[in-house]
Structures are given as structure tokens and as C-alpha cells.
Amino acid sequence: MSGGEKALKDDGNELGRLLQFWRSRLDCRRIAGVDTRRRRLKPGVTQKELAKLAGVSVNWYRALECGGRHKFSEGMLQRLATTLRLDEPERIMLFKLSVGHAPPAPRLTGDISVDDNMHALLGLVLPHPACIITVDWTVVAHNQAYERWFPWVANEPNIVRWSFLDLDAREQLVDWREVWAATFLAQLRVALAQNPDSAELRRLKEEVLDGCEEAREIWAENRSQVHADGEIRRFRLPCHGGEVVAVTIMALAPLRNTDLCFIVLLRAPGRDAPATGTTLASVTD
């Protein structure tokens, strides 16, 4: 037991006890990057393993779990909450006990007004999952089918951040690295070039690259892509009993508000359809 874990015996350290509990319920067998060959009988992940997964230093995490008085940035706390798979009440507890206030509301890019007609269109495309996103991939509206497929949207509205920082994404997004991760980062590079003044896009890039080692490796490949419209992707979701489901991505932009994008997932024939993607071009960073 490390010095940080011993400090949990302090009865006044409520946050420390919660963090230890949240660590203990993680299934290390389902987490990429955790060596399970020489596991202890103790469940969950260690402080060192969690710090690595969340993209923070071990000393930073131990200080948080020990109840020390330090400045903990909101970005780091958000990454930690995602890594621990905290629901909204638990995320609020993490922020309240560590920095004294609730987590900030999501910051959205551009004009995000979604009118009644757009909401109606989400319902008209049922039973296909559909959502409306901003230029930084934040979901601002969705239909019931989308929430059934992706229940995490209630706690993490940003698709890209979830894809890189949530521990379930690699299992649910088939061919995660080559198809999903590479494409998202290639699109993010183009979005940053098109919106150089967007603080939200810059923040998203920093959070993803800081929190995911593989994202940093893929980013260094200098690939670019404008959109994923028309591509076939595959999911392995709990709502489908773990079966692989293939969809065609349809991405549409309303002419009166091109800051928004309407995404519809159309079931592709045959659940074993191969995952395909537009060729990603290499560029100079």
C-alpha cells in the first residue's frame, strides 16, 4: 500500500475515500494500457495506473486522494471523472470536494440555436439514431434512438472527448485506432485550420492529446480529413448485446446555420460490413 493509500485512514478525508472506491470498481481487464499479467487479488486499478490512464502525474493524483491543498485544474478533474466513469452526481461530488464548486457547463462553439424544425427532424428520422453537433463535436440535441445507443451523452456531450478519454470507447468503436481515432484527429486538424480563433477547439485538442498517449502518436502522423459523410463505421454497443452493427454516416449542415451539423446513422446491410474510411492525407503541421 502506497503512502497515498495509507492516508485514506483519515476519517476526515471524504474525497479520498470516494476516489478509492471509484478506483476499486473499475474492471482492469477491460482497460487498455493496464497490465493484468501480474495482478493483485485486490480489485480495481492502482493510483499509478489511474494517473497514467487519466494523463496526470502520480504525485498530482496522490495529492488529490490524500486531501492535500493544491490547485486542481478543471481540465484535469474532467479527465479524471471520465477515466473513473463517474456519473453526473459523482462528477459534481468530485468537483465540490476538490475545488469547492460544481463542474462548469459545457462551452459550445458558434451559434447553437436549435429551432423547433430541427428538433422535429430528429424525430422524423427515427428509428435511426440522429444528433445535432457543433463544430467542436458537442451534441446539442439528439433523438431517443441516439440516447439508447449512446447513453454516455447525458454526462459527456462531446463525441471526440468521449472517444479518446472514456474507457469504453475502444470496445464500442470497432477498429478504434485506425478508423475512429485517426479520422477524428484528422478532422480536428482541419477544423482548427478553419477556425483558428476557436478556444473550444484548442481546448479539445489539448485535453485529448494530454489525456491519451495514442492520440499523441496519431496526431504526429499529420493527417487531415474534412468530414466522415458517407463512410461506413461499425459499433459494438451494449444495447445490441455486443453484436457488431454497421452504419453509414450521413452528415448534413443546415444552410441557415452551418455552425451545426446534423448526423444520422443509417444501418448498413449486414452487421459484418467492413469498416471503411476516406483516405487521410498527410500534411505538414
Rank of each mutant, 00 (worst) to 15 (best):
A199F: 12
G75I: 04
P106Q: 07
V139F: 07
L192Q: 13
W180V: 05
P104T: 06
R189M: 03
V125E: 00
S113T: 10
V140L: 07
A145L: 01
V140A: 03
A186H: 12
W176P: 06
L204K: 11
Q172C: 11
L173D: 00
P103N: 07
N143H: 12
N195R: 12
A105F: 02
A154E: 00
N195W: 03
R203E: 08
E90P: 07
A181P: 11
V114D: 00
M93S: 15
L97V: 06
C212M: 02
P157N: 05
W176H: 04
T138Y: 04
L167Y: 08
Q78G: 08
H128L: 14
H101Y: 06
Q78K: 01
R203D: 14
M118P: 01
G123S: 03
P106A: 02
R161L: 05
Q144T: 04
T134M: 07
H128A: 12
T109R: 09
A191R: 14
I159M: 10
D197F: 08
L209K: 01
T138L: 08
R91F: 06
A154K: 15
D87K: 14
W137H: 11
E171M: 06
L188M: 10
E207H: 11
E200I: 13
E74C: 04
E214I: 10
D210C: 12
A182W: 06
L204W: 06
S73G: 14
L126S: 10
A81R: 06
S98T: 10
E207I: 12
F72Y: 14
V153Q: 03
D210M: 02
T183K: 11
V135K: 15
N143K: 04
D87R: 13
H128K: 15
